[in-house]
């Protein structure tokens, strides 16, 4: 009896304590709300403080037109990959930047570069009719573009739908290229040329990497090496673009790497032979017969060096 009583007393006490606790809890939560709304206000002040800061334009900007022109001097990855495919170079999955690496890209710098890289990978896969395998890369591109706030340039639903079959390669390429195109233009208009430049750089680096690391046969080796050599001019332009951002440490590292790549390209010579073209008309189209020639002189040694340098550079970009 006594035992039971004390147990009941305890439970009764607990009940009373619970009721008291409930009251305290109510009071506390009211206070808490005040504190939290107060806190929130405080934090917001911080973020919006930035708005009143004057926009410190750190970059010595080349004017937009110049940037646009120079970016357009970077060839579309389609160019070189088409050459590869036409000359019978075999497709190799291993050349691509693994889709899973996207998890490592946290800053705008990394994201922009790799948006370009994945873009080139996408085109490469499509050229070789590996359209269905591109879905993960499409999703990566979407994610990176979204992180960079330029997702509005790709119609993902259509892209995904089209990518379900290899028959739609052309449409896919169309959408992808127009997307990248518009995106670049937009970024420059928005004063985010640095992003645009990085994307272009990324596409170029990946293209060069694929070209240098693809399995060539004696038959197509020459042609491909020549195409590799032609990138000398592009690299010059890229460096010019990049130099206006050399205060930024990330850019700086990249510039250094590109410079050491450029050293290898210094051993390439390109000569131009100009001649008057002739025009034919057939099937309602004008067909140009190009009589001019460009001659690229590049040694195997140089190719090896370039291959090595681009590999280092590219792997640093994608890690």
């Amino acid at each position: 009896m006594k035992y039971r009583k004390t147990k009941m007393e305890i439970i009764k006490q607990k009940h009373i304590i619970m009721k008291k606790q409930k009251i305290i809890l109510v009071i506390l939560s009211v206070l808490l709300v005040q504190v939290i709304t107060g806190c929130q206000q405080g934090q917001r002040q911080e973020a919006t403080d930035l708005l009143s800061d004057s926009f410190k334009d750190n970059e010595l900007r080349l004017n937009d037109a110049m940037i646009r022109e120079m970016i357009s001097s970077v060839p579309n990855p389609l160019e070189i990959t088409s050459v590869l495919q036409k000359t019978g170079v075999v497709y190799s999955q291993d050349l691509l930047n693994p889709a899973g690496n996207i998890n490592n890209y946290n800053t705008n710098f990394q994201r922009a570069l790799n948006l370009g890289v994945y873009g080139t990978d996408l085109i490469y896969m499509n050229i070789y009719d590996r359209t269905v395998a591109t879905l993960r890369y499409l999703s990566n591109i979407r994610e990176l573009a979204s992180d960079l706030r330029v997702e509005q340039f790709f119609d993902y639903n259509t892209l995904n739908r089209l990518s379900e079959s290899s028959k739609n390669v052309d449409s896919v390429l169309f959408i992808t290229n127009t997307g990248f195109d518009r995106m670049t233009r937009y970024l420059i208009d928005q004063g985010r040329s640095n992003i645009a430049i990085l994307i272009s750089a990324g596409t170029w680096i990946e293209s060069l990497y694929i070209a240098t690391h693809a399995q060539t046969t004696p038959a197509n080796k020459e042609i491909i090496n020549k195409r590799i050599g032609e990138q000398k001019k592009v690299l010059d332009n890229l460096l010019l673009l990049m130099n206006s951002y050399d205060h930024n440490s990330d850019f700086n590292h990249l510039i250094e790497d590109l410079k050491s790549l450029k050293k290898q390209f210094d051993n390439v010579t390109i000569t131009y032979q100009y001649a008057e073209p002739s025009i034919k008309e057939s099937d309602g189209m004008l067909v140009v017969v190009d009589n001019s020639r460009s001659i690229v002189d590049i040694s195997d040694e140089t190719i090896k060096n370039i291959t090595r340098e681009i590999a280092l550079l590219r792997n640093r970009v994608i890690e």
Partner: peptide, 26 residues
């Protein structure tokens, strides 16, 4: 000038130009 899509003499617009390039450049 390499090519233009308007044939002045014939006063005609040609809709498409096909250009097989043998000199890489801008």
């Amino acid at each position: 000038l390499v090519v233009t899509s308007y044939m002045v003499e014939q006063n005609r617009h040609i809709p498409v130009i096909m250009f097989p390039v043998l000199m890489s450049g801008i």
